[in-house]
Design a protein around this nucleic acid. Structure first.
Length: 264
DNA sequence: ATGTCGCATTCCATGCGA
């Protein structure tokens, strides 16, 4: 089965691209970030007509996540646990059938954290702390788990075109990268890095300064897999060509393909 | 190159977030 993550930067602006991508890549599950709309304005009918069930956790103007799935989603959770006062719509999860069992999919829109020096950066670190706590709880279930989304983290220098240019940025500060490693050290696998050691693999190119034309990108959209999911991992795809479409999102979709049953 | 998008309101211009 194919599970994909994509920060669409407004689902209403990107509806044509979204429908074209569903047809082209045929993901079984598609996690969307930055839908930038409330639940009642989400283009649900158009997506259901394409053969997908829809769950949303929307918000006016900013943020907002959704999961599209060919199978009906079960055990849906809205919002990241750990801070009832957090009103930003950045987390959604559900379960779908995989082989004889199920796979749990979390859709993540991790805070950007810039500018560093404002309250935005501690919010990011706190959110990462809560995500680690939730991931640890899910990992105890010992089931196939895919935490997919826009992590707003450049894990390693090789994941950006110009590390020096990002040195002071919330996406690449040592403390940010350390928190991301803590997540991996719980027992999660970065699916793209598990399947390729290729260089210059990016998932985001800024709209400004000809970043796309110069391939001045960063790899910040990730799919982190539990051991039970990694045992089923066939391959990954960064759908880079989507960035070349007319009026694109600044992020491209990233997919993992999983076997129905683990290799043993 | 303080360079581009998308959203919302102060609504055809500006501020915010990314």
């Amino acid at each position: 089965m194919r599970i994909t993550t994509w920060n669409v930067n407004s689902v209403r602006q990107r509806l044509e691209h979204l429908l074209a991508f569903l047809k082209e890549a045929e993901p079984d599950v598609l996690c969307l970030q930055e839908i930038k709309t409330q639940d009642d304005s989400f283009p649900r009918l158009e997506i259901e007509a394409a053969g997908y069930h829809v769950v949303t956790h929307g918000q006016k103007t900013f943020n907002g996540v959704a999961i599209l799935s060919k199978a009906r989603l079960e055990d849906v959770r809205t919002g990241l646990p750990g801070d009832p006062s957090d009103e930003q719509a950045r987390y959604l999860e559900g379960m779908v059938p995989l082989g004889a069992g199920m796979v749990r999919v979390g859709c993540i829109y991790l805070p950007n954290g810039n500018p560093v020096g404002t309250e935005k950066y501690p919010y990011k670190l706190g959110w990462m702390e809560r995500l680690a706590a939730h991931a640890a709880a899910l990992l105890k279930l010992e089931e196939p788990l895919v935490l997919a989304g826009d992590y707003n983290v450049i894990p390693e220098p090789g994941d950006c075109h110009d590390p020096a240019a990002w040195a002071q940025d919330a996406l690449f500060l040592p403390q940010t990268r350390a928190k991301f490693r803590e997540l991996l050290n719980l027992g999660l696998t970065d699916a793209v890095r598990a399947t390729t050691n290729a260089e210059k693999l990016y998932t985001f190119w800024d709209y400004q300064a000809g970043a796309w034309q110069k391939n001045n990108g960063i790899r910040i959209d990730h799919l982190l897999l539990s051991a039970q999911a990694t045992d089923r991992l066939i391959g990954t795809t960064i759908h880079k060509h989507v960035r070349g479409w007319e009026k694109p999102s600044d992020h491209v979709p990233v997919s993992v393909d999983l076997r129905a049953e683990p290799v043993r």
